[in-house]
Amino acid sequence: MNYIWYFLIVISIIFGAVNGKLNDVANAIFSGTELAVKIILTLLGIMTFWLGIMKIAEKSGIVEFLSKILNPIAQKLFPEIPKDSPIIGDVAMNFSANALGLANAATPIGIKAIEGMQELNKDKESASNSMCTLLAMNTAGFQLIPATVIAILAANGCNNPTEIIIPTLIVTSTAFISAIIIAKLFKRVFPPQKDCEVINAD
């Protein structure tokens, strides 16, 4: 992440200078912080609401119920998570919220899932394999109906906006499945996390 962040900023400054937009780049620092705060404010409300609702779902046994049903698939996708763990239920609800296009609900629920994974994580500073798989599922953007895009197309006078549903579904399913396969491949290539730090500390 250090290199990526450095790369993004250096590229911006070099291209800003070449394109004569250095002033815009400097202004972007402030507009960027403003945008970040706006996003956080929205997120703060959404997170508070949905983590509240999720606590109710957890206490009423809905999350546990989902965990039990999905256990066979979950064992393959997340071998490190113990059987019948509520984390699987959270992952299932995160996936469902994404599929239904409820991005606002999906993020808080996904964060609840990754918090559970962090408790099992050996090295708290680095991402575990389960986390990488969860994020692969989330960054692929699987969605049954792209409602926002259809609404924009319809508003701009498109004849038949719903005809993009099937093509989009094909693309998004392929990307989703590829994401999981790619994550499983990288898992073998990348060095495992160091898990001996606790022992060394003793």
């Binding site: 911006s12 400054i13 394109n19 937009k21 780049v25 972007a28 620092i29 960027g32 970040a36 996003i39």
Partner: peptide, 12 residues
């Protein structure tokens, strides 16, 4: 977000 805003503003 700041890094991405800078990148977009630079025209890269």
């Amino acid at each position: 977000i700041v890094a991405i805003s800078m990148l977009r503003a630079s025209g890269a």
